[in-house]
Design a protein around this nucleic acid. Structure first.
Length: 742
DNA sequence: AGCACGCCGACT
DNA sequence: GTCGGCGTGCTC
């Protein structure tokens, strides 16, 4: 009888394909094999092997590739993720199997594409969309670019063949040394030592119980969470096992790697999207052999083939960067919990401002909850005070109120640093003609164009559409009547420069000229004190630590509170908590001043009083009442995009087909989460769901029988947020309800 | 992912 | 008419 292997191929295919194993070839489950597929040869992973009658019509396995076999836990993870996220199994496998190109026998793959400068021989609407996005000169993944432009891959391929886009590979660097868990270190505070002990006890307890319970480690900014989980990492390494520390991409800074080096003597192996080529493969091999003891990585590190994983830490667990929005939709934090369960290793979630769903999981006893109440080294939290903008309005035409101007002035006079925070890029969010009332609007989306004064352009923050800032009104022709309305960071910097002409002021936002590398250098320079006043967007709230910073001024705390995103309150609270926490992380105490028109709003009130507990309690109650995440079953159907009316109509048609009908939320492009509208689809539809795997299978059927929208439309099922239901027999007819323990 | 196929507007 | 661009579906 011939041996038949079911082989999963890392392509968007949901089922394994059958191949016959030729005589003399030994093939085992988990082997990476080379196989024919259509006209070419590809790789795949053996999912099952069986003796079988027949099978003579099957094509044969070409050979086994000499790389470590895929372990049971990783195969389990692939199955689990595919099922949970409704992605084809092959796509989930592809995340695990980013093979060395050499081993696959292929020449250097097109890793990324970049604009060449050569115009295409032919210009079409689809092509110009792609080129408009690539125009910034950044390199992007091929499919990412196609997705962003809202066109199919063949457009990008066409442009590569035409020479308008260059296909490029990414460059390598060297791999990781062995961390020393007993490297001399500064002693822990009492609270930290207690937390370390509690952590060990929790891990021991769950090891005894036979099932590892994730631990949520919550500690205010500056309480030393990192030092606490470093001890857990040290214990893991002492035990001869490997540890994985997941971080959001932006937080993976040189600063963090140095901190690790201070504790362990060497820098850890770092894994992120930027590492490629040979280095990537050497690191993967070191992980698979068990030689790499600690890996610090962005979400994709979750799929590395660890030989003996002993601990997963998810730092800043609330960060949205953990959500993968394209291809397979997954949340790395939750998949970390799944991997921990499959590996039987502890998982530690750390945050100063945990996500609602992790708080809920902790409250229900699904996670253990550890709290670090105080700041490290006796440092105090910054004092936070509100500036009520109704009582202390700024002067006409300016945005910094007198009390804040004063505070900045005194801070700078003492030689300390100040930060003015405004989460809005550019100069002004709206440009208006005072002569005719014309408002500059994006021609793709129904959003206002944001003025970027440095670039002399009007830019759509949704789709990237850009035009030159006109001299005269394009509608009525009047000169000198175009008026910027409202502030962006550039405008605040202008105002600050007028107030403090002899101070060094820098604007830090994601469109910093010179790209990510320059920005990183600039952040280091600011941390070193080479600047007096920073005007920044949310970018400065995360990752980087500025020791000389003693004052944070929040220019508009109310931004974001009115957005239609169901997570608006949570996000705003987290962001403001983080950014105000930036003050006073050095020697000197810090304070924060928050400009607001609604100091009594629950989010602002919680921030001012420092009563996070109350915020969480109120937010959880509100969500529960509204059936929003993490409590709704089919939490919401969010439709949004450039054509709001079409989106709403289709959303309602879909909802009518569902049983029970979900809540619909129709968002204009301006209110919707950015990720939802990227790309120029007529509209996008995001189905938010959670908890129940069977509910998702039901959703798949529902979408299959529901009316198909016409035109450039995208439908996505988003598994958000995940608090797991493992109850047997849950189904669409009898889904989990919130009263049930699962 | 790559490749064939088929549809559709543009143009010697 | 056919040619190139582009979306769709298939690959054991």
């Amino acid at each position: 009888m011939p041996t038949v292997a079911e082989i999963l191929i890392p392509l968007a295919i949901d089922t394994p394909y059958s191949y016959v194993v030729p005589h003399g070839l030994a093939v085992e489950v988990g082997d990476v094999v080379q196989i024919p597929l259509g006209p070419r040869e590809t790789v795949g992973v053996v999912w099952t092997v069986a003796e079988s009658v027949g099978g003579s019509n099957l094509r044969p396995v070409t050979g086994v590739i000499d790389v470590p076999r895929l372990g049971g836990t990783l195969r389990g993870l692939v199955d689990w993720i595919a099922r949970y996220t409704l992605a084809p199994k092959g796509s989930a496998l592809a995340m695990v199997l980013r093979l060395p190109d050499e081993a696959a026998g292929a020449e250097i793959a097109r890793v990324a594409v970049k604009i060449s400068g050569k115009p295409p021989t032919r210009a079409t609407a689809a092509r110009s969309k792609v080129l408009a996005i690539a125009a910034d000169g950044e390199s992007r993944g091929k499919s990412a670019l196609a997705k962003e432009a809202g066109v199919s891959l063949s457009v990008v391929d066409g442009l590569i063949d035409d020479g308008a886009l260059d296909a490029i590979a990414i460059a390598p660097e060297p791999v990781a040394p062995v961390p020393d868990p007993d490297h001399p270190r500064t002693p822990l505070s009492e609270a930290q030592a207690d937390a370390v002990a509690a952590l060990e006890a929790a891990f021991d307890e769950s090891a005894r119980a036979g099932a590892v319970k994730p631990v949520l480690l919550e500690g205010v900014t500056g309480s030393g969470k990192t030092e606490v989980y470093f001890e857990a990492v040290a214990a893991c390494v002492r035990g001869g096992k490997q540890a994985l520390i997941l971080m959001p991409e932006i937080a993976l800074t040189a600063q963090f790697l140095d901190r690790f080096a201070e504790r362990f003597g060497v820098r850890p192996a770092a894994w992120h999207s930027g590492i490629g080529g040979r280095r990537r493969e050497r690191l993967r091999a070191a992980v698979a052999s068990g030689e790499a003891k600690v890996v610090v990585g962005a979400r994709s590190a979750l799929f590395l083939p660890f030989a003996q994983l002993g601990l997963i830490v998810v730092d800043e667990e609330h960060e949205t960067a953990y959500k993968q929005e394209d291809g397979v939709h997954y949340h790395a934090r939750d998949m970390a919990v799944v991997r921990g369960r499959l590996e039987g290793c502890p998982v530690l979630l750390a945050s100063a401002t945990p996500s609602i769903e992790s708080r809920v999981n902790a409250a229900r006893g699904r996670y253990d909850h550890l709290i670090l109440p105080e700041r490290f080294g006796g440092r105090r939290l910054p004092d936070i005070a509100a500036i009520d903008m109704r009582r202390d309005p700024p002067e006409r035409g300016s945005f910094i109120s007198p009390p804040l101007v004063n505070a900045v002035k005194h801070t700078l006079e003492r030689g300390e640093q100040a930060l003015l925070f405004l989460n809005r890029r550019g100069y002004a969010p709206l440009t208006l003609c005072r002569a005719c009332g014309h408002r500059y609007q994006c021609r793709n989306c129904s959003t206002w164009l944001v003025e970027h004064r440095f670039r002399r352009a009007l830019v759509c923050h949704q789709c990237g559409y850009t035009e030159r800032r006109p001299e005269a009104c394009t509608n009525c022709g009047a000169f000198d009547h175009l008026t910027p309305c409202g502030p962006g960071v550039e405008r605040i910097a202008e105002e600050a420069a007028a107030l403090f002409p002899d101070k060094r002021i820098i604007v830090l936002s994601s469109d910093f000229p010179g790209g990510a590398e320059r920005l990183r250098q600039e952040l280091d320079a600011v941390a070193a004190g080479e600047c007096d006043l920073v005007v920044g967007t949310q970018l400065v709230a995360k990752g980087h630590n500025f020791p000389g910073l003693t004052l944070v001024g929040v220019l508009d705390a109310d931004i974001g509170l009115t957005s239609g995103d169901p997570r608006a309150a949570e996000r705003t609270f987290q962001l403001l908590q983080q950014v105000t926490g930036r003050a006073g992380r050095g020697e000197k105490p810090g304070r924060a001043l928050v400009q607001t028109y609604q100091p009594e709003h629950p989010v602002i009130a919680a921030l001012l009083s420092g009563d996070a507990e109350r915020f969480y309690a109120e937010e959880i109650a509100a969500r529960e009442a509204a059936g929003l995440p993490p409590f709704g079953r089919l939490a919401a159907l969010i439709v949004s995009g450039t054509d709001k009316a079409a989106a709403e109509a289709h959303g309602q048609a879909l909802a009518r087909e569902a049983d029970p009908p979900p809540g619909i939320m129709v968002l204009g492009p301006a209110e919707a989460p950015l990720a939802l509208i990227r790309g120029r689809h007529r509209f996008r539809l995001l189905v938010k769901t959670e908890r129940n795997i069977d509910m998702q299978a039901y959703l798949r059927e529902w979408l299959a029988r529901a009316p198909k929208p016409r035109g450039n439309v995208k439908v996505t099922i988003d598994v958000d947020p995940q608090s797991f239901c493992r109850r047997q027999g849950a189904s669409a007819a009898r889904p989990c309800t919130r009263s049930e323990q699962c």
